[in-house]
């Protein structure tokens, strides 16, 4: 029993260190700038009403506003009307810190657009990877043809090359054909997943030949066999690969950083967050952490819901 206690103590200490930045990220996304500066307010902050200075400044009344408001305030001087208007603006610009942080996250930068880009890019990468890898894996596993061994050795060799490592020549090639700052640039280098081919081939090797022969008897062509027979049998492996692929590309920062410069419409979520950080001043810690929370949350939630599958998918590369 005491030994178990020690184990728990060690593991809990580790867990605290692992959780600390997550705790801080979520907590700051709830707090007002003052609370962040002074380090008060516990996890949720006190959620006292705060005034959004920028919003007040935007509504700063000019002479026309004062003239327009004159009927509402009869028998008052211009400066009195002005003060009343400012007071109104301050009242309207009051918000709870949590609402302030999250609305700022979505309004200061087109965060929705970034998230959409993230979805578009990760989904296209995954779909193209499958369209390319599945037929090749089937041919390598189940068809006899001259050159099969050579192709497979090439696959094994390409497994040695990390795409991030050859980013520079890839960037030059894309620049030469004028594709930088396009969706294509974000997707193209990842369309070939040698690892996917290898994985699917290993999986298809275990599918009995009879299944394929039966399909041929029914008059199915090889293309039809790939998509209508092999694909359904490979669903579990595909799911694991999907998780692997989506996690890698949703979180990827290096490649988008290289091929997307300046064009905000193409920013993926990590790039958007980076830009936010670049031009943020001290008072924007809250909204920035809100952005970070929004970006991190989808995968974390998915992971918590389907833990076993995620761990399977992420550690796929470890399966032999």
């Amino acid at each position: 029993m005491t030994r178990d206690l020690w184990k728990h103590l060690i593991l809990i200490l580790g867990a605290l260190i692992v959780i600390a930045p997550f705790y801080m990220m979520v907590s700051y996304s709830f707090k007002s700038p003052g609370e962040i500066d002074r380090g008060e307010g516990g996890f949720f902050g006190r959620q006292e009403m705060m005034v959004d200075e920028r919003c007040v400044k935007l509504r700063d009344p000019d002479r026309d506003d004062v003239a327009a408001a004159a009927p509402r305030f009869p028998n008052q001087t211009d400066s009195q009307i002005r003060d009343a208007l400012v007071a109104e603006a301050v009242a309207d610009c009051q918000m709870r810190p949590i609402a302030f942080n999250y609305t700022k996250a979505f309004t200061e930068a087109p965060l929705l657009r970034y998230l959409l880009n993230g979805v578009i890019v990760t989904a296209s990468i995954f779909l193209i990877q499958i369209v390319v890898a599945l037929p090749a894996a089937y041919a390598l596993a189940k068809l006899k043809f001259w050159g099969r061994e050579a192709v497979f050795s090439l696959v094994l060799f390409c497994l040695l090359i990390p795409v991030h490592a050859i980013a520079l020549p890839l960037y030059i090639m894309l620049a030469k054909v004028g594709l930088t700052n396009t969706y294509a640039a974000l997707v193209v280098p990842w369309t070939i997943s040698v690892f996917g081919i290898f994985l699917m081939r290993q999986f298809f090797m275990t599918v009995p030949d009879d299944l394929i022969d039966a399909a041929r008897m029914d008059g199915m062509g090889e293309f039809a066999i790939v998509w209508r027979v092999m694909l359904p049998t490979a669903i579990p492996a595909l799911l694991a690969f999907a998780i692997f692929s989506v996690v890698a590309h949703w979180n990827d920062y290096f490649w988008p950083r290289i091929v997307v410069t300046g064009n905000r419409d193409l920013f993926t979520p990590p790039l958007g967050l980076r830009e936010f950080k670049g031009d943020g001043d001290g008072s924007f810690f809250g909204p920035m952490m809100a952005t970070a929370t929004v970006i991190v949350t989808p995968l974390i939630v998915a992971f918590l819901v389907a833990q076993r599958r995620f761990i399977e998918g992420i550690t796929l590369s470890g399966m032999k």
């Binding site: 930045p21 801080m24 990220m25 979180n251 920062y253 970070a292 974390i300 992971f303 995620f310």
Partner: peptide, 21 residues
């Protein structure tokens, strides 16, 4: 589950969180 969280999280976001820490 807890120890696996950082593997799933966007490293860039967590880097910024660490910078504040």
């Amino acid at each position: 589950t807890i120890y696996f969280l950082p593997v799933m999280a966007t490293l860039l976001a967590m880097a910024i969180a660490w910078e504040f820490m």
